[in-house]
Nucleic acid binder design. Structure first.
Length: 717
DNA sequence: TCGATCTTCACTAGG
DNA sequence: TGAAGATCGA
């Protein structure tokens, strides 16, 4: 029966799937059947009797990936996937903490803060400590705290000599204290808490080690320090850690991912080397050749060459537009041409480096009447109406939830303004009680009446919710809080928001809690852990628009990569750091390898960015692709008869367009200044004798220089 | 308290 | 450019 399971695997896949019961690193190239290997590995372990479902723990980064793994596994063999622990790092940690909440010092009903809520908690903390949020921007404090948590370090273990860091450490400590007081945890805390739970409780740790003999990790290149430490803790000395990843697709260093974990795993577990999955089942040969040539320029790779049994396919089409508008027009025209040829819109994608690039595309798409769908933007559980409703629900369970209280104390407006809230916060601080308790005890004052009404409302919600089931509670809260009335009165987008609130009631109706008496808590937890899909109505056949990051893991018959310009892709923020540039190159590698048959690379010679025109030069990444793989298209024959398949064809000669230059300098050019050192031109203004350059210096930051004075201090690099 | 106006800021983003 | 947050006046 094994044969069934293993049929159709290539030699490398087979070697990975049937790897003995010890640790391994699988270096899985783009389109090499990674998910298949992972799920088949689990099925094989079960089928050969090496593992039972309870001894499997599989970790992914996204809920989508976790679901996909479960679905595919269930399709592969009749096994109850519920007995396995398959989920995201955060989902599994949440599970551990809920099960052992007594050992963690958390209330059973602890709530999870998303990053927005974490930030408002920090703002509130700064205010209560009377610390200026100019000197300590909440975002930076948040980054510091999360960074420390991801390094596994608590405030108490830190020390510093400079007053600034000292203050940050104090804030970290105060933030944790506030969270503990309020019974909430942020995302990083989920990880760190469960790490500490296991590392401080030998018996518990031993219990899980004895249970989870087989740990499997997807997208291992995206793990941060703490996640790897967590895995190592669970693996202990005896269990098998099977990690699948691709160092060439590591594009999340900016949020703490450590590609180094891949090499570390080899060393830590004495694995001779990675199993390489290099056969690609997705893209045409030319596309792979381009990807290979590009990524070869990066240093320190584990090394891998993608190849395909399929033919070379089409050349990669290159279009050099004179403006961002022309670039968008080209893409849309080409999409229409492909559609006429029978390609479906949903099998085509436009990828870009940054979300701002979608605007002009949308504009042209609307004009052309082409259906499109943008990934990105608000997700379901991030919408304000949903957050408001959930905040009332939270107050109904636990009125001491200051975050929730602050969110809705004046929504809908009930005459409790900023002033009154501030008074309330002062009172709560002075008395050392929650805002709710302070509100309950509030005596005089101008808004005391309004406050009392709010207290009464929450009390009423609490009492009336008690006997109700989850869906009834959600519904009650929406009606009684006044949210429904508020959105009914809202002419602008009230209708849509009401529809979303109804959708929330639907979600609550269909929700299946593990423990019925904790249904509300579980529902709220799920809402924090799974914010929902980025895109709405997936039904219609529509062109897909998304960032390259969002495209990771996806594939399309035709892919357009737009904005291939120095400063944009690679992004200028990565110019002064070689590591940053390598990550940009990996991002380009990800973009290229999304395409099955057809790949278009486009750039514009002028682009509106932040309301200013820029004249960037073409991205170095285009030049890093061997010329023989490229076919240059040009607009010169745009007026060709409509019988032409595409209105943009290869010209008889490649038109040499003038590159925008200012005083001999170009945007994107690297240079050196006698005083400021190395930098890159990121913008230019003026003409003739009166030219100013904006330069991003590695050491001195961004400066405008007047060429009349600076010209002789600059040298090209 | 609320709306209108001003200022600021800008890459990528999962749980 | 344009969205979002801060500030100001009614």
């Amino acid at each position: 029966m094994n044969n069934d399971l293993l049929a159709g695997l290539n030699a490398e896949q087979l070697s990975a799937v049937t790897w003995p019961a010890k640790s391994a690193l699988v270096l899985a190239g783009a389109g090499s059947g990674k998910t298949r290997v992972l799920t088949t590995r689990i099925a094989w372990l079960l089928q050969t009797g090496q593992a039972n479902p309870a001894s499997i723990l599989a970790v992914t980064f996204t809920n989508k990936a976790a679901r996909e793994m479960q679905t595919r596994l269930a399709a592969m063999m009749p096994v109850n996937v519920k007995t396995m622990w398959i989920g995201t790092f955060h989902g599994l940690c949440n599970r551990l903490l809920r099960m052992h909440y007594r050992d963690t010092g958390l209330p059973q009903t602890f709530q999870i803060l998303d990053s927005g809520e974490q930030q408002s908690a920090i703002k509130r903390l700064l205010k209560s400590l009377d610390i200026s949020d100019e000197k300590f921007p909440p975002k930076q404090v948040q980054q510091f705290i999360n960074g420390q948590k991801e390094a596994g370090v608590r405030a108490g273990e830190l020390s510093a000599h400079d007053p600034y860091t000292k203050k940050l450490i104090e804030l970290y400590a105060a933030y944790d204290a506030q969270c503990n007081r309020e019974g909430v945890v942020d995302f990083a805390e989920l990880l760190l808490r469960s790490y500490e739970l296991l590392s401080r409780n030998a018996a518990l740790c031993e219990h899980y080690r004895a249970r989870f003999r087989f740990l499997l990790v997807d997208e291992f290149q995206d793990t941060n320090r703490l996640q790897y430490a967590w895995l190592k803790l669970l693996a202990g000395p005896d269990n098998a850690l099977f990690a699948v990843g691709d160092d060439d697709q590591s594009i999340y260093a900016f949020r703490g991912a450590e590609v180094g974990n891949m090499r570390a795993l080899l060393a830590d577990y004495g694995v001779a080397g990675p199993v390489r999955l290099e056969q690609n089942y997705r893209s045409a040969g030319t596309i792979l050749d381009a990807a290979n040539a590009l990524i070869e320029r990066n240093d320190g790779r584990l090394g891998k060459q993608l190849w395909t049994a399929a033919g070379p396919g089409d050349k990669i089409r290159l279009f050099d537009a004179y403006s961002d508008g022309e670039e968008a027009q080209f893409i849309v025209d080409e999409v229409k041409a492909l559609k006429r040829d029978g390609w479906s819109l949903s099998d085509m994608a436009v990828l870009y480096r940054s979300n701002a690039q979608s605007r002009i595309l949308e504009h042209v798409l609307v004009q052309a009447g082409v259906a499109y769908r943008i990934y990105g933007g608000l997700r379901f559980f991030e919408r304000q109406e949903i957050k408001h409703a959930l905040a009332y629900l939270r107050l109904a369970i636990n009125p001491d939830d200051d975050n929730a209280l602050l969110r809705v104390i004046n929504v809908p407006a009930r005459g409790i303004g900023a002033r009154s809230v501030e008074n309330l916060q002062t009172a709560s601080r002075e008395q050392g009680v929650s805002l709710w308790q302070a509100a309950c005890g509030a005596g005089g004052g101008r808004t005391a009446g309004k406050l009392a009404e709010f207290v009464l409302l929450v009390e009423k919600l609490r009492q009336r919710c008690e006997p109700l089931n989850l869906a009834e509670q959600v519904s009650l809260v929406i009606d009684e809080s006044g949210l429904r009335a508020m959105y009914e009165a809202d002419k602008k987008d009230g209708e849509e928001r009401l529809a979303n609130l109804d959708e929330l009631i639907n979600a609550a109706t269909g929700f299946m809690p593990q423990e019925p008496q904790l249904a509300v808590v579980e529902f709220l937890t799920q809402a924090s852990l799974e914010a929902g899909d980025h895109q709405a109505d997936a039904g219609e056949d529509a062109l897909q628009l998304m960032t390259v990051h969002a495209a990771k893991g996806l594939e399309f018959n035709a892919v357009f990569v737009g904005g291939l310009e120095e400063g944009l892709f690679p992004h200028e923020n990565s110019f002064n750091d070689p590591k940053g540039l390598e990550e940009e190159r990996r991002l380009m590698y990800v973009a290229i390898t999304r395409a099955r048959q057809r790949l278009y690379l486009t750039n514009a010679q002028s682009r509106m960015l932040h309301g200013q025109s820029r004249y960037p030069i073409r991205s170095r990444f285009v030049d890093e692709i061997p010329a023989e793989l490229l076919q240059v298209l040009s607009a010169t024959v745009k007026a060709a008869p409509v019988t032409s398949r595409s209105s943009w064809a290869e010209p008889a000669f490649v038109q040499q367009k003038a590159v925008a230059r200012q005083g001999g300098w170009r945007v994107g050019q690297s240079l050196s200044h006698t005083k400021f050192g190395a930098g890159v031109v990121i913008n230019a203004e003026g003409a003739g004798d009166d030219v100013r350059l904006q330069i991003n210096f590695a050491e001195h930051g961004i400066k405008w220089l007047d060429l009349r004075y600076a010209a002789d201090k600059l040298t090209s690099l």
